[in-house]
C-alpha cells in the first residue's frame, strides 16, 4: 500500500496516502502514549518496600524477639537475644523446609511443622531437624541492621 507509483500520483492515490499517514500517525501517538499513561497510573503496591537486606532499625526490634526478613526469595530470621546480641539465620528449617520462628518461652528457634528446635547459634538441638541453620552475617550501621550472606 506504500508503493510509490511510477506515474504521477493521481487524486485517489494521494488521498489514500494521506489517509494512511493520518491514521498511522494517530495510531503511533496512541501506541506511544498508552504505555506512558499506564506507567503514570499509580501501581497496586504504591511504594517500594524497604529492602530485604536492610532489616530495619535496631529500635524496631525488641530484645528477646525474632523477625522474619525476606532475603531475595528466601526467608531469614533475625534474632535479638535477651543478652542483646543480633543473630541471623536462614529461616528455612533443615528438616522439611518450613519457616522457623523465635519462641520466647523456649528461648530457641522453633519450627511449627514438626516441633524442631535450634539453639541461638542455629544448632539443631531437638526434634527432627538433621542439620543446623545456615548463619547470616549481621552488621550494625548506626541504628540500621544489615543482613548479608556469610562469605
Amino acid at each position: 500500500m506504500n508503493q510509490t507509483p511510477e506515474t504521477p500520483a493521481d487524486q485517489s492515490k494521494r488521498d489514500f496516502l494521506q489517509i494512511v499517514l493520518g491514521g498511522a500517525s494517530a495510531a503511533f501517538l496512541a501506541a506511544v502514549l498508552y504505555p506512558i499513561f499506564e506507567y503514570l497510573k499509580p501501581p497496586k503496591q504504591a511504594e517500594v518496600e524497604v529492602s530485604s537486606v536492610k532489616a530495619g532499625k535496631l529500635s524496631e526490634i525488641e530484645k528477646d524477639s525474632g523477625k522474619i526478613i525476606k532475603f531475595g526469595s528466601k526467608p531469614v530470621i533475625l534474632i535479638r537475644t535477651a543478652n542483646d546480641e543480633l543473630r541471623a539465620f536462614s529461616a528455612t528449617c533443615t528438616h522439611l523446609d518450613c519457616t522457623v520462628q523465635y519462641r520466647k518461652d523456649y528461648g530457641t528457634i522453633w519450627c511449627a511443622c514438626h516441633n524442631g528446635k535450634y539453639d541461638l547459634n542455629g544448632r539443631n538441638i531437638s526434634g527432627p531437624p538433621p542439620r543446623p541453620l545456615e548463619e547470616y552475617r549481621v552488621v550494625l550501621q548506626g541504628d540500621e541492621i544489615l543482613i548479608s550472606k556469610k562469605v
Partner: peptide, 20 residues
C-alpha cells in the same frame, strides 16, 4: 507494525513531494 507503516508512509510522502 504501526511504526513501520508510518515510517513507510512518510517516506512515500517525501518521494511524492520530490517527484512533483
Amino acid at each position: 507494525i504501526i511504526i513501520t507503516i508510518l515510517a513507510l508512509a512518510l517516506y512515500a510522502f517525501v518521494r511524492r513531494l520530490e517527484r512533483k
